[in-house]
Design a protein around this nucleic acid. Structure first.
Length: 563
RNA sequence: UGGGAUGUCGCCAAGCUGGUUAAGGCACCGGGUUUUGAUCCCGGCAUUCGCAGGUUCGAGUCCUGCCAUCCCAGCCA
């Protein structure tokens, strides 16, 4: 697959173009996507995936998937498996499947090299002491008392650390750089810590684990990465990235380039917060259809193509940004408009009785599966005396310009007949439970010679042939555009949208939908795009998720005029 | 009284080394088509590039000074 046709220019591609022109890296392009397996991928990761894999594709280069698994305290195989699945589902193929933990032996060797060069030392200070010696944002740090230990002593202790001779936290290995540096990352950063933890890949082979700053740059170099793309918060780490590679014997020095992370309004994208939503049961799991995770969006019904399209539209730059939900919604509408077969469903049914239609008559209406793509074929939908229409499509006291069914009104049942309002039946509370109409035999869809024109066209389902299936109507997870801005001293969970999930238990739809397979997507005419839930749908008993509504200029009008 | 970054239309975002009327997408506003108030089509939508000065024949693009926002003080990544 190629993304070049809809991939806009960005500053990273400009840099790569220059590098290729100047012959840098032998005109080779190699990227990598380096997630830590401590959570599920979200829309922000999707952007990074599209960037890294997209560049590899467009420049005939390569892109590795590399798990940055240097902290066994929070990583697990479950996350590794989920991340692999998500990337494959998004439609990308990695060249190498790598793990930083596979480089532990080499990493250890480079650490000894730094010690031998007098550029790293073991420190016995407590975590607390190291913190206070580090200084603050405005005050420089102070050297550790252990800073000038002899090289062979450093080596001996470091080997002892590896051999398990010391307790967790007793020693750390630090780079000897500059405690006076205005960049805190350069104030003798920690390279290794002792952690007696089982690692999902290396098991109990190691009791010392390397830190990110030491691991990441070397992993990139080992894999001969040319362009190491990461988000803006690592900008301050670039001097350290370069320092490590400049001081060890490795003949590759990738270029780190930072871009801004993708943020969205009305949701959160931080693993910590997403994890909190899951752990505290605010949602149904990492793949809850309201989650901005890749697996959540997949379950909601978003297509991989629509997510890729969205990321392309978002672009790549360095300014802080918050994308609007409408942009994401638009991407999936754009994709599904030309793919999803149309079908009729009624979410909140109200019965319509066609009084001049014989009790046992059933007309077979031929309905196109798509208004513009005849190749998608047609289907037969039964038209009977008793039908359901949506409650919303009938109003007793409608505002002006309401052109659906109303007292004295006329409406076309799509692909059926034009019907005229006659009467209404109420229950003991005065609630309308049935609408009586007459149909006009001369207006059968496709054979209409009546000359009648009606403005309103609504969908319907035969009361005797339709099936019932639960439909979940999803909406944004939060009520505020910036739920986590900390304003008003509130937690982001205080702004969860109580209406982010509304169940329509009585939805009625064409019987053909009974055989919908998990992940089959449809447009329910006039309502939106829906998907058969990939987990909850059973054979013959589908459960539908609303992916996104159709654009609704009537609803907009209604809101504006407070109708 | 530290360091690093960013500020171009409501939201994204092009704009290479300064040179005709400041791309494009989303949103929005008109109009047309339409048996989805959908889609589609057509038109509109920044005298101005955070602000103030300066250099220049000419600056969003160069210089100076302000202002605003974001990131950094994990033995996390």
């Amino acid at each position: 697959m190629s993304h070049s046709e809809n991939t806009p220019r960005n500053f990273i591609r400009t840099i790569i173009d220059h590098d290729i022109r100047s012959g840098k890296n032998g005109k080779r392009v190699a990227t990598r996507f380096p997630p830590e397996p401590n959570g599920y991928l979200h829309i922000g990761h999707a952007k990074s995936i599209c960037l890294n894999f997209g560049i590899a594709e467009d420049y005939s280069g390569s892109c590795n998937l590399r798990f940055d698994d240097t902290n066994p305290a929070r990583e697990s195989q479950e996350f590794i498996d989920a991340i692999r699945q998500d990337i494959e589902w998004l439609g990308f193929t990695w060249n190498g499947l790598c793990q930083a933990s596979n480089y532990f032996e080499q990493l250890y060797g480079y650490a000894e090299e730094l010690i031998e060069k007098g550029l790293a030392y073991v420190d016995s200070q407590s975590a607390e002491d190291i913190r206070t010696h580090r200084g603050t944002l405005t005050e420089t740090g102070k050297d550790s008392p252990d800073r000038d230990r002899a090289i062979d002593e450093n080596l001996e202790v470091f080997r002892g650390m590896r051999a398990g001779e010391y307790a967790d936290g007793e020693w750390v290995l630090r780079a000897k750089i500059d405690m006076q540096s205005p960049n805190i990352n350069m104030r003798d950063p920690i390279l290794y810590r002792i952690r007696r933890l089982f690692h999902h890949n290396t098991g109990d082979a190691w009791c010392i684990y390397p830190m990110y700053d030491f691991t990441h740059c070397i992993s990139d170099a080992i894999e001969s990465i040319t362009h190491s793309l990461c988000t803006l918060e690592f900008e301050d780490h670039r001097p350290l990235y370069d320092w490590v590679l400049d001081h060890i014997s490795i003949d590759c020095h990738p270029q780190q380039i930072e871009f801004s992370r993708l943020e969205m309004l009305y949701t959160v994208t931080s693993k910590r917060k997403l994890s909190q939503l899951v752990v505290h049961d605010h949602v149904d799991g990492w793949d809850d259809p309201r989650m901005p995770t890749v697996s959540g969006m997949r379950r909601r019904g978003f297509t991989a193509a629509s997510i890729r399209d969205f990321c392309a539209r978002a672009g790549v730059a360095k300014s802080q940004n918050r994308m609007q939900m409408s942009e994401l919604e638009n991407s999936v509408r754009w994709d599904l408009e030309n793919k999803a077969p149309r079908v009729m469903a009624v979410l909140d049914p109200i019965k319509v009785v066609i009084t001049n239609w014989p009790e046992d008559r059933c007309d077979e209406m031929e309905c196109p599966n798509h208004p513009k793509i005849p190749e998608l074929g047609t289907r037969i939908v039964p038209f009977t005396r008793e039908l359901y229409i949506d409650r919303e499509d009938f109003m007793e006291d409608p505002p002006s310009k309401y052109f659906r069914l109303k007292p004295g009104g006329t409406v076309r049942l799509k692909y059926g007949y034009i019907i005229d309002y006659q009467d209404v039946v109420r229950d003991e509370n005065g609630m309308v439970v049935e609408i009586h109409c007459s149909y006009d035999p001369a207006t059968r869809s496709g054979q209409d010679n009546s000359g009648r024109k009606v403005k309103g066209v609504i969908q319907w389902v035969s009361a005797t042939h339709g099936i019932t299936a639960p439909v979940r109507m999803y909406d944004r997870l939060f009520t505020r555009p910036l739920p986590a801005d900390g304003k008003e001293g509130r937690e982001f969970t205080d702004y969860l949208n109580p209406e982010s999930l509304i169940l329509k238990p009585n939805a009625v739809m064409e019987s053909s939908l009974a055989s919908a397979n998990p992940e089959d997507r449809f447009q329910f005419e006039r309502l939106g795009y829906f998907v058969a839930d990939r987990h909850d749908s059973k054979a013959g008993a589908p459960v539908f998720n609303r992916i996104v509504s159709l654009r609704d200029s009537w609803g907009k009008l209604e809101q504006q005029h407070g109708a």
